[in-house]
Nucleic acid binder design. Structure first.
Lengths: 188, 188
DNA sequence: TCAAAGTTTCAGAAATTCCTGAAAATTGAG
DNA sequence: CTCAATTTTCAGGAATTTCTGAAACTTTGA
């Protein structure tokens, strides 16, 4: 690899991390390299800098494309494809969350819904179903909330986050207000 | 495996999912089995129900213990150890979030801090550092917020989540209030 | 239509991770 | 302390995943 030590350590960290959760080392490193790169890179450049085979890079990029984490572009008079990552880190974060939701959460919810529909054949089954229901409700609550949040604009989101647990006070306050006015701010 | 089809499908789903992110198939299945089980199980029971070797189960349980996802207990007159998962799904969720933070987020933050301290040797390095800083700030904001939220009691948390994006309105409202009173609800 | 440039696919080698059985270590009752 | 019950460790075989080079495919410009 012919990168500065700075980029080097960033890239290898992402390699390791990548393999810690689903994505593999190659994919993690390619992403990291693109993320810190000043300008878009083509597949050969990536292969050279990371000393991976050209085909390995091709597969890695395909994987990253399926996660919608890279952007593809062309330069006039150059037939090669150049890759880069979106600039906005918030957007990246949202994309990641959406994809993980689609790949991990949704299938689980589907499975749980299915299991909850079955008629329980035993006391053990009945207990299992009750547990699955608890899990289902938690996951659903958390993910719905997450997608609510995703649709907020970045400013509000940042304000909310900076507010931190103080939001509790705001909530208590609005609740006492709603008691006075008789209107409830909660939906459903 | 000698489980009802209901439990069966739940357990194998967790096996698959497990391997999709870091944890392996065995570990995922053991966890799933314990999660829906009415009563605590000992290692032999687990091995038998999932048709894994006894030693594999032992390793899986050790892994789950390191994630603080299982609880260990003894019965009088029985020397074997019985395993179960905590009942409260919220507590489970929090534990999971804490552990992932410790294992995945913190090392990344440390690496980024290190990289940001280095003196950039080139224009490329300077750009890389700027990118890393953006990433650092995002991660820090999100995780601080997460831990703030974790310390809220479950009722408030649920209320907040049910409120969803409507929280935006509440925020706007409090902001206009704070303009009136001259006090700001944001910390820092 | 052809050739050159570039990209993707894929079979199998290499590397890694998982899993097992046997043996070692630990635990607790007597 | 001894012994049996139980748990853990670990070397190496099995299974899976990753990675490569060669070949196939695609695209574009002449």
């Amino acid at each position: 690899m012919n990168a500065t030590p700075l980029v080097q350590s960033f890239v290898s960290h992402f390699g390791e991390m990548g393999s810690r959760w689903g994505i593999n080392r190659t994919v993690g490193q390619i992403y990291a390299l693109l993320f810190v790169s000043e300008k878009p890179l083509n597949a050969d450049e990536i292969a050279e800098r990371l000393s991976f085979s050209r085909s390995n890079v091709s597969m890695g990029l395909k994987e990253l494309e399926s996660w919608r984490l890279v952007r593809l572009q062309h330069y006039p008079g150059d037939r090669r494809e150049y890759f880069s990552t979106p600039d906005d880190v918030w957007a990246i974060f949202k994309t990641l969350a959406e994809e993980r939701k689609k790949r991990e959460v949704e299938p689980t919810l589907t499975m749980l819904r299915g299991a909850m529909m079955e008629t329980a054949g035993s006391e053990a089954d009945r207990h299992a179903q009750a547990r699955m229901k608890e899990m289902y409700q938690l996951i659903e609550l958390v993910t719905t909330w997450f997608s609510d949040i995703q649709h907020m604009d970045v400013e509000t989101l940042q304000r909310l986050m900076k507010l931190g647990s103080q939001v509790q006070k705001v909530l208590q306050f609005t609740q006492s207000l709603s008691k006075l006015t008789g209107r409830d701010t909660e939906r459903e």
